[in-house]
Nucleic acid binder design. Structure first.
Lengths: 141, 141
DNA sequence: CACGCAGTTGATACAATATCTCAAAATCAG
DNA sequence: CTGATTTTGAGATATTGTATCAACTGCGTG
């Protein structure tokens, strides 16, 4: 029977990977946490839902999702731990305040056209992007 | 006497930081390595030039330069080590192949206009940006 | 140009984070 | 259901970044 899986889970399967319990758990944690999470937070959440899932599997899944452009690691604050960002439709944009580290997200972007131009000029096949501005937020100006 | 320092070093000083031997060494390593380096590579290069400089200072300097938008950590391949990117004029753009991890840099960008619009609408003061596309490079298509 | 203070350093011990290995278990096509 | 193959989990280990703190240094000041 064709069970119901999230579109992202389908992408995993389509890429030839198995939909295991561990992977689905990590994915649902990411989807429900709103977009910005560190690996430590993912580990904690996964552990809460099912403490039998090993750390190694969580990291492996994060790497896998990164390779598929489903999430993207980025540095919000510390240089020690990356923060993973869900890419809703393959892209994401935010502003990081270099003073208070607040993250301001915004929609938009005229980058579809730029992507198309780059694909043609450089003979590449783009699947997503991350645009990160940094500066001072309204409170820190 | 007004010694000669690189523009980036001046930015450090202007922000109220001292131009110490350790900081200038880290900065020159970054400037001479072309733009993409991991922290391990920076440590190694710094150590080659002056083995008395401690690891802690190197990491502290990387964090400092990041806060000033002079460099930006980004994930090229592994989730363990960030790769630092020099921001020539406060911005940088590249494409990362999700298959072979090759990095393709490109110039451009119509983002100045977008930045101006965001500054006005969100009351922020932007100083730089990083635009990262991912997909398959010409060899991996 | 010597003085002195705040900012910075370097060494090491420590903490946090990710990877490796491999037998056992789970997925899923047929 | 069954088998081929991928994936998992546990923990030991490696890697990477941080805390601490006395000693030192850049640089404005007198």
């Amino acid at each position: 029977m064709s069970e119901e899986f999230s579109p992202r889970a389908q992408r995993l399967r389509d890429a030839g990977h198995k939909l295991t319990h561990a992977r689905l758990t990590v994915l649902s944690v990411l989807e429900e946490s709103g977009g910005h999470v560190t690996s430590a937070e993912v580990l904690e959440q996964v552990n809460e839902r099912d403490s039998t899932i090993g750390r190694a599997s969580v990291f492996r899944t994060l790497d896998l999702l990164t390779a598929l452009s489903i999430i993207r690691p980025t540095f919000i604050h510390t240089s020690l731990t990356p923060t993973y960002v869900l890419l809703p439709d393959g892209h994401h944009h935010h502003i990081i305040c270099t003073n208070c580290n607040r993250v301001i997200e915004f929609e938009e972007c005229g980058l579809g056209a730029m992507a198309a131009e780059l694909e043609q000029r450089l003979h590449v096949k783009l699947s997503g992007h991350l645009l990160e501005f940094y500066g001072l937020c309204d409170r820190c100006c």
